[in-house]
C-alpha cells in the first residue's frame, strides 16, 4: 500500500498549505447550515407540546455539548497519533483543539443552565449531563494548564498528550459514575431527550446545526492549526517561499 499520503500529513508546509485551501470548504457550508438551521429552528419548527418555545434552546445547547465532547475526542486522537508516530503536526492539531473545546464546554453549560431555569425552576441542577460537562471543563483546564506550564514545546506536546489519553480513558468512567450517582440521589429529570420521536421540522434544524457546528469547528481548527504551525516552524526555510 502507498503510504505517501499519510507521510504528507507529517510535513508542516504541506499541511499548512492544505489547511489554507480547505478552510473555505468548511467555513462556507458551516455558515450556510447554521443560518439555515437558525431560521428552521426559530421560525419554521413548531413549539413543543410540553416546553412551548423554550425547547428551541436545544438548537444551540445540543450542538455546543456535542462539540465539547467531540473536540476532546479529536484532541486525544491527535495527541495519540503525535505520541505514537512522533508526528509534530498531530501535536499542533491537539494544541489547537483545547481552547475551542473549553469555550464550547462553557457554552453548553451556560445554555444548559438557561434551559434549566424555566424547565426545572433553577439554573443549576446536579443533572448527570451538566455535571459530566462541568468535569470535562476541568479536564480541558488541566490540559491547557499543563501545556502552558512547560516551556519546551516538544515536552509540552508529549506530556499533555499523555494527559489527554488518560483523560479519554477516564471520560467514559466519569460519565458512567456521574449517571450512576445521579440515578441514586435524584428523581429522573423533567428534561428527557429520548422522547418517542421528534417531528421532522423539529429534528431537521437540529441535525443541520450539529453538522454546521462540526464544520465550523473544522474551519476554526484549520485556521488555528496554521497559526500554530507558523509559530512552531518559525525558523524553517519553507516559510520564506510561503510568505513571499
Amino acid at each position: 500500500m502507498d503510504w505517501t499520503w499519510f507521510h504528507k500529513f507529517g510535513s508542516p508546509p504541506h499541511v499548512y498549505r492544505l489547511a489554507g485551501l480547505l478552510t473555505p470548504w468548511f467555513a462556507w457550508p458551516a455558515a450556510l447550515l447554521i443560518l439555515g438551521a437558525l431560521y428552521g429552528g426559530l421560525v419554521l419548527a413548531p413549539p413543543d407540546y410540553q416546553q412551548g418555545d423554550g425547547f428551541r434552546i436545544i438548537y444551540v445547547h445540543a450542538p455546543s455539548a456535542w462539540l465539547a465532547v467531540m473536540i476532546y475526542a479529536v484532541m486525544a486522537t491527535a495527541a495519540g497519533v503525535g505520541l505514537i508516530w512522533r508526528m509534530k503536526v498531530a501535536h499542533a492539531v491537539a494544541a489547537s483543539c483545547a481552547g475551542v473545546g473549553a469555550w464550547f464546554t462553557v457554552v453548553s453549560l451556560l445554555t444548559g443552565m438557561l434551559w434549566g431555569k424555566p424547565m426545572w425552576g433553577t439554573y443549576w441542577v446536579w443533572d448527570p449531563r451538566l455535571t459530566a460537562q462541568l468535569i470535562l471543563f476541568f479536564l480541558y483546564l488541566g490540559y491547557m494548564g499543563l501545556r502552558a506550564s512547560i516551556d519546551d514545546t516538544s515536552r509540552a506536546d508529549r506530556a499533555s498528550a499523555v494527559l489527554a489519553l488518560v483523560g479519554v480513558v477516564n471520560l467514559p468512567i466519569i460519565r458512567y459514575s456521574v449517571e450512576w450517582w445521579n440515578s441514586i440521589h435524584q428523581a429522573p429529570s423533567v428534561m428527557k431527550m429520548d422522547r418517542p420521536s421528534m417531528p421532522f421540522d423539529m429534528l431537521a434544524p437540529l441535525l443541520a446545526m450539529l453538522l454546521g457546528f462540526t464544520l465550523y469547528f473544522g474551519a476554526v481548527l484549520l485556521i488555528r492549526l496554521r497559526a500554530e504551525i507558523l509559530r512552531r516552524e518559525r525558523n524553517a526555510s519553507w516559510i520564506r517561499e510561503e510568505l513571499t
Partner: peptide, 18 residues
C-alpha cells in the same frame, strides 16, 4: 516537566478522581 507543581497537580488529578 512543568515549572510549578502544586495547584496544577490538583487540577490534573482531582477531575480524574471523580
Amino acid at each position: 516537566a512543568s515549572r510549578r507543581g502544586g495547584v496544577l497537580l490538583s487540577l490534573l488529578t482531582l477531575p480524574l478522581a471523580v
